[in-house]
Simulated scan of single mutants.
Amino acid sequence: MGESSGTVPRNLPVTGRRRNMNLSEMTKKELYRLAVELNLANRSKMTKEELEQALDKAMSDNKTHSSTEQHKVHPSPVLPEKISPPEYPIPDRYQIDTAVLLPVNPRKEYVYWEVADNTVNRFKVQHESPEISFVLKVFGGNETDSGEELASVRVGRYGNWFFDLYVPDKMIWAEIGLMDNKGNYFAVAHSRKVRMPSDKISEMIDEETWMTVGEKIEDIYRLSGVNELDSAVPGSVRIFQEVMRFLETNASSSGTTAKREGR
């Protein structure tokens, strides 16, 4: 008997009901069909008793495997870690001795500064001064001299400050320095010298002579064919009158010519 021959009897229970089967009550042919369904090896050489034993073992193994799979805990899928883009925050400090002055208007100035940690530590050692102060100053003068002190204020190691100094059209600059515990001041960094804006109207006068609106209109009408304008009548009224007279004259001339030609 071949392993692939025959069909399963109609009264053979379906796979889902195998657990309720009584193999001892089945015929050898029914057992064989079940062995075909379960794909048992060497089934064609087995006796009825051997088929019962092999089927019973195979069905028990399948039941155990199904129960194990049913109660098996499947781990949750591991999602890839979300990679955040790198952040580049603007630092509060750059560890560079700096002083910058920016004019706002003729009576207000903005200054920002910084003193590096290395500068502070070196100053403390050189001047044997564990306690120091930071002093921000503003000077005024010209581009060549050292200038005069206009303002002075004690500040922190870094920061910004608004000054209300009314010095229009003057050269000014800022300076940040350190003061030891004996009151001695030492400059650290200074800004560029800048000229404050003026509080007056500019004295520069444009030397170019501009054409008036009336002159432009007159030139336009001259280009249109009006050669003579009555200078006794001012402005646009004069131009209007001359243009109308010019048009009437041309219209009359055109009518006379048309009559002569018999049109």
Rank of each mutant, 00 (worst) to 15 (best):
S254R: 00
S133R: 09
M211E: 15
S191A: 07
N42A: 12
L165A: 09
P234R: 09
S76P: 09
E218Q: 10
S76C: 11
P106L: 01
Q53F: 11
T98F: 06
L51P: 02
S253Y: 04
Q70P: 03
L247C: 13
P13W: 02
E49A: 12
I176S: 11
I132P: 03
E69S: 07
D164L: 06
D117L: 10
V120R: 07
E207I: 15
D117M: 13
N160I: 00
N42G: 10
E207F: 13
A35C: 06
S129P: 04
E149D: 02
I201V: 15
G225N: 05
N62Y: 14
P168D: 04
P77E: 08
M171N: 07
V14Y: 14
P103Y: 08
Q95T: 01
L247E: 10
M204V: 13
W113K: 04
W161F: 08
N227K: 14
Y158H: 02
F246N: 10
S5M: 08
A116T: 06
S67R: 13
A54R: 00
E81I: 03
Y88M: 12
Q241D: 13
E52W: 01
I239E: 14
T64M: 02
E25N: 15
S24Q: 08
P80V: 10
I90G: 11
S44D: 06
A116W: 02
T47W: 10
E228P: 01
P106T: 01
Q95E: 14
S129H: 04
A116Y: 01
R122N: 15
L136D: 01
V36E: 00
V36N: 05
T256N: 05
E49V: 05
S133F: 02
R238E: 07
T68I: 14
V14F: 15
N250K: 14
P106H: 01
S253C: 03
P197Q: 06
L247S: 11
V155Q: 00
I239V: 15
M179W: 02
F162H: 08
P130R: 07
V138F: 06
D97P: 02
S133E: 01
I90N: 13
M179G: 06
G235Q: 09
T98I: 10
R43W: 06
Q70C: 14
R154Y: 01
E242G: 15
D92V: 09
K82I: 08
G225F: 05
G141C: 04
D169E: 11
T68H: 12
P91I: 02
L51F: 05
N142Y: 00
T212K: 15
A189V: 04
Y166A: 15
V155I: 00
F134L: 04
R19I: 07
E49P: 04
E148V: 07
S67E: 12
S4H: 11
D97H: 03
G255Q: 10
S152T: 00
T68P: 04
R19Y: 07
K28E: 02
E228G: 12
A187R: 11
Y166F: 15
L51V: 11
S76L: 13
E114D: 07
Q95V: 03
E248P: 04
S231C: 09
S236F: 07
K170M: 12
N160S: 08
V213R: 12
L178V: 10
V213W: 05
L223N: 13
S231Y: 06
Q241V: 13
Y88R: 09
K193I: 13
K216A: 14
H190S: 11
D117N: 12
T64N: 07
M196C: 07
V153S: 05
R17S: 14
Y88E: 11
N181K: 13
K137P: 00
